[in-house]
Design a protein around this nucleic acid. Structure first.
Lengths: 68, 68
DNA sequence: CTTTATTGTAAAGGAAGCTTGACGTAAAAT
DNA sequence: ATTTTACGTCAAGCTTCCTTTACAATAAAG
């Protein structure tokens, strides 16, 4: 699954640290999500969408590998 | 987190079993999500939205408890 | 040059998502 | 009356998400 978290984060001028704080998660979580190490939980993805004033599908993108 | 999975599922005339098959997960997973036992993963939520021809935010709804 | 800010890696452990299998109940179909 | 369909519970076990802690690299700022 690809994502545009870094792009949205930069638009809002947030560091990974600040975004983590805003979302109530650790900085590691942000790094891992941005790097594609794993996907955020659904609530975290939805809170992100809210913070970035958009919807989940504008930030996260399904790929082949996501279908089983 | 609340959801309208049962509503969408019935609109499409799917049993839990058939929906599970369409999504590539077990029936238990559908039951647990519908009953609010736990949240789907982000990719599963997005695949659901696709199957139901809508977006994630129309099926799943953040609540107070989702913010930490 | 030293400090500070930002991004990154690694690893261990806890919490949440998902699977499989077995079993129970109720309603509809034959 | 028996079978089938649909929904549900419980439990064990694996995988994925997320946390914390510690350490490293780079670049910009003082």
């Amino acid at each position: 699954m690809k994502n545009k978290v870094p792009e949205y984060r930069k638009i809002y001028g947030y560091s990974q640290d600040k975004l983590a704080e805003k979302l109530g998660v650790s900085r590691q979580t942000i790094i891992s999500i941005e790097k594609g190490k794993y996907n955020p939980s659904l609530p975290l993805a939805m809170i992100m969408a809210k913070v970035f004033e958009t919807n989940v599908e504008s930030i996260f993108f399904l790929e082949e590998e996501d279908y089983r």
